[in-house]
């Protein structure tokens, strides 16, 4: 099993490149979906101790809306797309063609639309990952929740903790200026799959 603590800068760069290509796909997909110019930050690839994952993204108690998907197939892992409640309300306004500021509570339709956004984002990143590694990856259906970040991520941490003390996270931050929406997109491959990814990128 790969030791996450000993990933070389070269390997982290290769992982960041997945983020870069994923970001360019996601950028286009999200801009089309929202009919707004969405900016995606330069991706980061980082190794974080499992118990520090919530702190790394704003703290365990931060209230967020999250969409979770599982990666299955030749590469497995977790995808979490999350943002503030304000962003979620604005996203719902845009997706449902309502004037900004209309949505006060997310109904089931809004939640479905937000889940779909997660699926589209995940799909574009996984297409990039799949093309780069030449491996088949299937995303699960999306799951929606609104709660404290720490509570949303703890089962992901639990899953990873069976085989590792650290998580390798590819992180994309996205934002849109006019409506002031922003959020985070995290890709957390399982430790076994990280090895598969690095090997197929030729840096294993």
């Amino acid at each position: 099993m790969i030791d996450l603590k000993n990933l070389t800068p070269f390997q982290l760069d290769a992982l960041k490149e997945i983020g870069n290509i994923g970001a360019s796909h996601a950028d286009t997909a999200l801009s089309e979906l929202l009919r707004k110019k969405v900016w995606i930050s330069v991706p980061e690839a980082k190794v974080v101790p499992l118990d520090e994952v919530p702190q790394e993204f704003g703290g365990a108690e931060k209230m967020v809306v999250g969409v979770y998907l599982q990666m299955q197939g030749q590469i497995s892992g977790n995808i979490l797309f999350f943002f503030s409640q304000e962003t979620a309300l604005t996203l719902a306004d845009i997706l449902m063609n309502r004037p900004a500021g209309t949505t006060k509570v997310l109904n089931e339709m809004d939640q479905s639309a937000i889940k779909e956004t997660g699926t589209i984002l995940a799909g574009s990143c996984l297409t990039a990952l799949s093309a780069l590694t030449n491996k088949e990856i299937i995303p699960s259906i999306p799951y929606y929740a609104m709660d404290m970040l720490g509570a949303l991520v703890d089962f992901i941490i639990i899953n990873l903790s069976q085989n590792a003390e650290y998580a390798m996270i590819i992180q994309l931050e996205f934002s849109e200026a006019e409506y002031k929406i922003d959020g985070s997109f995290l890709l957390l491959p399982d430790p076994q799959s990280l090895e598969v990814i690095l090997t197929s990128l030729g840096v294993g």
Binding site: Q70, Y143, Y144, A145, A151, L152, D154, F155, N159, Q162
Partner: peptide
């Protein structure tokens, strides 16, 4: 011991909560 994302299928550990 909650299940945060209701009915997540194929969770490797089942309902871990």
């Amino acid at each position: 011991g909650a299940q945060m994302f209701a009915n997540v299928l194929a969770e490797p550990l089942g309902n871990i909560g």
